[in-house]
Design a protein around this nucleic acid. Structure first.
Lengths: 204, 204
DNA sequence: ATAAAAATCGACATAGTGTATAGTTTTGGG
DNA sequence: CCCAAAACTATACACTATGTCGATTTTTAT
């Protein structure tokens, strides 16, 4: 494996390869939207990026590696966003803020997020990335629940376990809704928020 | 297309082909557990069922058709089970009963159910089967919620929308938990049940 | 300007899918 | 018991996609 992203990522000047690599990922994302993962071939990606198949294999070892890199890029963006966002102390506000942010993320990156979820089983590396992301959310939700008075702990009716279930609810609901329209996503968000609030004991 | 399941399904005597067809689906299920969908080849399935590749194509037109038939078989079993089960009138009992039944279904058919979910995107027919199944559950949950006093309707905080979110929560939670162990699944079930009860306004 | 590193190309080998065909065995209803 | 349909076998083929390789060209740093 010759030149690879992480190894080349912090160079003084930008290599030509860095541009190509980005072009490959961008093309991959576009094709994912057009034809989906299965229908998209390595040749398609290469062509879209303006190079031959052979050249693409200089950058990535396989189709899966390309998509993994794309997911990694997106997911890093999610982490960034989560880290930066201010965490409200008041549970009710925290929940509303979190849901609004989640809607934004799905609106911007829904396609790649759905792809990541779909490939979590088949591509272990993507599975790990997505699991880690989910864990971040679960931890955040747990904190909010505890602050709202839910008993801490991992028993079925305590904060940790409930946060996990809520996380999966949001993931799946958004997964489906983001395929429809922005309005659907917005409504789905409201529903999830309501359930989260109720679960936290903050009956509105 | 020579002999096909649905066309041959209700014959007086059982043809030999019916047995083989079942053998193919059984092998498919076993291989799915061993190596997963992608790694499993048509040749593998044929070999496992004791026939040649050519013979398999006598029964099914493609690998996807085989898996679709397997999903259809399983899903029909789910519908059967749902229809037969008595529906309790009292919401609290209905919820407990539903969750117990769901645990049983995932314990028995978790593998195929997970496969169905994974392939819902790529194989439209499987997607339809699973969607229909989900709709059945959503309807059932809606009924229970309404009976528990949740306002009917499809606005974000009304029964229909909330039932959908709860359904996805259960699906995803069980999807993950059923990969772990029976105990994990049991605990996950308890958590979902608790959230469902809370959402229905039946604080325990 | 030049040599090493990076990037690219095109040919090749491989594996899996689905089709087709020609012939063989099994089976079940009359 | 017999014969037509059903259920195969064996084999070959066309096709598509993947991934590898060595040769060659282009960049980049000095």
């Amino acid at each position: 494996m010759p030149g690879h992203h992480s190894a080349r990522s912090r160079r003084p000047t930008e290599r030509k390869g860095d541009v190509r690599e980005r072009a490959i990922l961008d093309t991959c994302e576009a094709l994912l939207a057009q034809k989906g993962y299965d229908a998209m071939t390595v040749g398609d990606i290469a062509q879209g990026a303006g190079i031959t198949r052979g050249a693409l294999y200089f950058y990535f070892g396989s189709k899966q590696e390309v998509v993994t890199a794309l997911v990694a890029r997106t997911v890093e963006h999610l982490w960034e966003r989560s880290r930066v966002t201010a965490q409200a102390d008041e549970p009710r506000q925290a929940i509303t803020a979190a849901m609004r942010r989640t809607v934004e993320l799905w609106n911007e990156h829904g396609l790649v997020m759905r792809t990541a979820i779909d490939l979590s089983l088949t591509v272990p590396e993507i599975g790990e990335l997505w699991n880690h992301t989910a864990d971040l959310f679960i931890t955040a939700i747990t904190t909010v629940l505890e602050r709202a008075g839910v008993q801490p702990g991992s028993e079925p009716d305590q904060a940790s376990a409930m946060a996990r279930a809520l996380c999966w609810m949001i993931e799946r609901t958004f997964y489906h809704a983001s395929q429809e329209s922005r309005e659907t996503l917005q409504e789905a968000s409201a529903t999830c928020e309501h359930i989260w609030l109720t679960t936290a004991g903050l009956t509105s």
